[in-house]
Every structure is written in C-alpha cells, then in structure tokens.
Design a protein around this nucleic acid. Sequence first.
DNA 1: CGCGGGTTTGAGCCTACTCAACAGATGTGG
DNA 2: CCACATCTGTTGAGTAGGCTCAAACCCGCG
Lengths: 244, 244
Amino acid sequence: MPNSLQSAFTKNLLRHIDLTEDERTALVRLEGPSVACSKRENIFAADRPDDRIAIVRSGWALSRACSDGGLTTITQIYMAGDVIGLTELGFATAPYDTKMQTDGTVSVMSRQALHDFAKEHPRLFRLLLSLVSLDTAALQDRLHAITRFSAEDRLMHFLLTIKAKSEHISDHDSDRFPLPLSQKDIGDVLGLTDIYVNRLLQRLQKGGQLTVNRPHVRIHDRAFWEHKLNFYNRFAEVDFNWAH
Amino acid sequence: MPNSLQSAFTKNLLRHIDLTEDERTALVRLEGPSVACSKRENIFAADRPDDRIAIVRSGWALSRACSDGGLTTITQIYMAGDVIGLTELGFATAPYDTKMQTDGTVSVMSRQALHDFAKEHPRLFRLLLSLVSLDTAALQDRLHAITRFSAEDRLMHFLLTIKAKSEHISDHDSDRFPLPLSQKDIGDVLGLTDIYVNRLLQRLQKGGQLTVNRPHVRIHDRAFWEHKLNFYNRFAEVDFNWAH
DNA sequence: CGCGGGTTTGAGCCTACTCAACAGATGTGG
DNA sequence: CCACATCTGTTGAGTAGGCTCAAACCCGCG
C-alpha cells in the first residue's frame, strides 16, 4: 500500500513496530470508513450513553470538563492518529464531552470491534495500550505543572508538550508547530484566564522567546526551556519490549 | 475459598463480576506471594528501568512527581486491591516514584506475567482495563478541580474522592474514612501549601462541616458537598457490558 | 530529655484574577 | 456585498486568594 494512503493511525503504529500485511488489513478494517466532522462538532457527549470509540484521521479534537458557572477545563487533546475512548472503557456514558476543535475526519467504531481486534491481534492491542500510557503520563505531567508551576512556566510546559506530541504524530523537524486554540482555550488547558494568557504570550514574544503566527507557533530555544522546566518528552520514550 | 482469605484485588473484581474457580486460581497465581513494605519504602523508582507491575494487598501507596526546588505533586493514590503500573506500560522506566504511604503488603510481578494472564483470561483483563479507566477519569476530575476550583472546593473535592474510592474498595457505609496523609501531603495533592491546608481544615471543622480524628475524617453532609461541587462518583459507575 | 516531624498562628506580600472598554477578525443573513 | 452580531484579542486599573517567612507548639520516640 502506498505510504500516502495509510491512515495517521497506521502510521502512528508503524513508527514503533513493523506490521505484517495481515495486521495492516486488520487495522484498515478496524478503522472502517471515516466521516468528515466540522469544527465544534460533537463526537462524544457526556449525557448520552455511547458504547463506542473513535480514531482521529485528521484535525484536532478536545475533551472538556465543565461545571456550572462556566468553569471549563480541557482535559484531553487528540490529534491525527489518536484513539478516543480507550481511557473510558469502564463507562456507559463518556465522562466528558469531546468535540472537534478544527475541521477534520474521524472513524467511529464499537467497543465490540476493538474487543475483536484485541483477540485477533494481541500484539497490536498491547502496543495500543502502551501508547495510551504515554498520554496518561503526559496528563500527569500536566497535572504537576498546573499544580506547582507559575503561570509562565505552565504555558511553556504546555507549548513543549504540544510540540512534542505533534512531532510524535508527524515528524517535522522545524521548531514551528500548529496550535489551533484560542487564548481562552489555552487558558482552559492551563487554568488561567484568557486575559492573562494574552499577557504571557506577549511577554514571551517581546522577550524574543516565542513567535506566534496564528495558528502556528515557534519556540526559539526549545532546549533551554526543556532544561529549565525539567521537561520529559514522554512521546519519545516508548518502550515496547514487554509485548514481544 | 473462604472470603476472608481472598486478596483485596480479587474482592475488587468480584464486586463487578462472578468468577469461575479457574479464574480465581489464575488471580491467585498472578498475584503470587506478597511482601511486607513499611512506610516510605520505595516500590518503583523513576530513575531505574523496571519492567514490572505491582498489586497492593494492604496499605496505601503514592506516586509523586518531583521537580527541582522541592516542588512535588502526588499524582496517584493506590489503595488495597489497586494495580500499580498499568498506566505505565509504555515506559522502560516508571515515569514517577511510587512509595508506600503506610505500612502494608504488596505483590510484585513482571509485565510478562500480566501478558500471559491477559491471554488466558481476556475477560478479566478487559475488566482490569475498565477499572483502570475509572482512575483515569478520577485523575481528570482532579485536574479539573485543581485547574478551576477555589482552594476550599478543591479540598472538599479531594475528600469526596477519597471517600468514594475507599468505599469502592471496602464497603463501609459510615461517613468516616481513613486519610493517612499529612497536611503537607494533602497540599501536594491539591497544589496548596501545608499552612493553607491547615487553615482550610480548621475553617471546615469550625463551620461544623468536617471532623478530623487522625488518621480518620468524617464529612458531615456528603450529599450537600457532592451537589455543590457537581461531584461524580466515578467508582460507582462501572459499566462492563462491552466485555461480554 | 532533646530531637524531628507535623501542626498552628500571625503579618505582609505578590501573582493572577476581575471588571470594563475597545479593536479586529470572522461569520451570517438579507 | 454590505450590515450586524459574535467571537477573539488587547489594554488599563484595582483587588484578593493563597503564598512566604518566621516562630511557637505538640507529640511520639530514641
């Protein structure tokens, strides 16, 4: 199969292991057909039982936790090749709303299909679990950052994480990377107000540490920031020995 | 097998499904022998490769994220019956330090053993994944609380979570529950200073909302707090239909 | 009895928030 | 294609929730 026709999901797995022809077709079958989803469109709703999972083929999706009073937190960020729903297998109804953040395409399938897939291809399923654990570790890193870092450090930590994740998904070596989030959204990731995010972004730009060129961002001295924040690139660390 | 001899882990699973005799013995074999661990003893270290997982038989264990400057965050709280390491399968080295918080006992096993277990008992393995997802949801709830709640609400949210989790593990219906954490530790969960935690606890006690009787705590009007905070008891929601 | 870990109290300060207003983009319907 | 509404970004001024620093206290333990 020509490389260009492989889904982001398949490419994601190929980055870590070789796939047999059989496994490739199983992946294609698992993903099934994809549907176009436009910005803001709902994928999973936290108020309606839904026994499915989804794979993002293109675009970004976000999960949000909301409580009354308009307090919202963006709990997860999904990019092309990510699976939505693997951390929600124990729930009849998704714990959070998940919506498209950009236009994109998504494949939706039943948990049953995943179940069957796991039975046929235990090795791939284990790889999937390993990849999920990267996101969980990144989530805990973010928890630590939000819990203990200053606002500026939180912002930089977030930008480093997005950079790390987006280059894990599609390796482009430039320091430039996409960030299709409003300042309000960034605040909802970091626990800051949009106004303060604005001031931080300006300060970083005036200090020559960052260039914002919506919807793209460039970090000027990545290594310096990674060192300063003790940043671990969780997505670069995948170990898959246990599965063989 | 007499009920009293079953491990906390087995009891945990039994709360959700019936087990065949075969499955019970497989669980016993998976857990293997347990070792006593005293307070503060290390289980997994973030600086040494370790290809294992652990099951807590008794006592509490905590994972901590630390960065220089003494900033630490408690990322996970493990109680009897919990599995440590299922969210770290993609790492050769554990992303965080995990230590006993109280004296207790723990069973340690290789990922390979888990792998074999999953092959033999896919149904139980899926249940395990479902249970892991509860903790991940609780983690995201905590992220939301820390991100957007006031210090007092964060504290109450945390107490509700501990209460919910501890009664999920061993059902006692009293409003009293164990909390073997210092005020500094609580601060490390919530992103507050020990001093401020102290003031909050006193305020709640003086307001007649809470009784602290170390190492136990009693919430006086749980329903009121759950309503006020929009609290979801994730541990009460387990759905396991997808696995059958 | 001295020591260390944990808790308690007080005083002052700073980070990040609130409120308010405007400017620029984006989008939508007529 | 314009007019209006909405969303996003920008700027200023004042505020407060939770922090810092410092010191005392309590209690179990060697």
